[in-house]
């Protein structure tokens, strides 16, 4: 199954929920100060566990950076 993550396509072999997916992408880093959108909808952290990814989903993981 293909998932788009921050603009790049990634192939996933098994069914996964958003929580597992984000944790894996963060490489063990604490998911603090980040936000996740799935197909242009914000998914609050409390909903990550129950959100199962499907084919062609578009995931954005963002955080705050320097800005004016």
């Amino acid at each position: 199954m293909n998932i788009k993550i921050n603009g790049e396509v990634l192939e996933l072999n098994e069914k996964t929920n958003l929580s597992e997916f984000v944790t894996h992408r963060l490489n063990g880093k604490e998911p603090r100060g980040i936000a996740v959108a799935l197909n242009d909808m914000i998914i609050p952290k409390s909903k990550w566990n129950e959100t199962i990814l499907s084919e062609n989903d578009n995931v954005e993981i963002v955080h705050a950076v320097q800005g004016g």
Binding site: I5, N6, G7, R25, L26, N27, G33, I34, A35, E60, I61, V62, H63, A64, V65, Q66, G67, G68
Partner: peptide, 20 residues
């Protein structure tokens, strides 16, 4: 103070650090 929102760099561990 103002900050921006940008994609997290998932490729390298030394990506842009969170301003926070």
């Amino acid at each position: 103070v103002t900050v921006s929102i940008r994609r997290l760099n998932l490729k390298s561990a030394d990506g842009q650090e969170s301003i926070m």
